[in-house]
Amino acid sequence: MQYHTPGSFEDAIAIASFAEGVTRFLAGGTDVLVQLRADIVTPDNLIDVKHIDGVTKIEREDSGWRIGIAVSGAEMSEHPDLHNEWPGIVEAMDLVGSTQIQGRATLTGNLCNGSPAADSVPAMIAAGVSVSVAGPNGTRKVAVEDIPVAPGRTSLEKGELISAVHIPARGSDGADAYLRFIPRTEMDIAVVGCGVNLRRDGKTITEARVSLGAVAPTALLVEEAAEAIIGTALDDAALETLAAAASAACNPIDDKRGTIKFRKHVAGVLARRTAKIAYERAGASI
């Protein structure tokens, strides 16, 4: 294994473009090193992106935020303005692993690992987050939901890497939330995850995005679930429609972490609970 420490995205792209065999990018390393230790993936080339300028910064961008690709979960949690504006994203990221994992793990890594159960991904999808993808042919902006294509696989081409995460402006009367179900209180991989982002006008929800994790090969953006609550005051009927839409959207598997039946059911439960939190955070009361 060759270990590289490029000082710029250009250098990183050049190394990745010409590398032979398996290439991995290293930011927080909390997935890459696990795979290395467990002999699942031993990359031929490991490109440490932490020496690139600006990758550790959280900055304002068009009233929203630009998150560097090596910013750790702990740094996001400690950023009061980011946390106030996007508690769903920040808390979703904070749910990834332990305090120790939070010291290293990154949003970008959580996304690029390609796990359908990644906690931050449904939260980012619900929030309408996009990423810059830099590669040999320049930089393109891609919605988060278009990055994962299958468990462990992303839409990034050879030589490409994510160079920044863009969180939109919060705007008024809106809020997001993320909940996940795990059997313990900490340290588990999500059995189901749900992100909700909404805006209200008075008591009426005017915009909403609902995303589910761990219930399909990739995190889902569930439009039927959003439609179930748009135009409502999140009354019981709306919540029931939301839960049904969430459950119906699931295409899960039976595995060691949960059954199909359980995941479908809990997706509905979580959608209800998450929507309520977002609604209350947006300043409305049920």
Partner: peptide, 16 residues
């Protein structure tokens, strides 16, 4: 801790 930040040393390379 690495630069004051709590981490698992099994999830960081020596080279880092």
């Amino acid at each position: 801790t690495v630069d004051g930040r709590l981490v698992c040393s099994c999830l960081m390379l020596g080279a880092e």
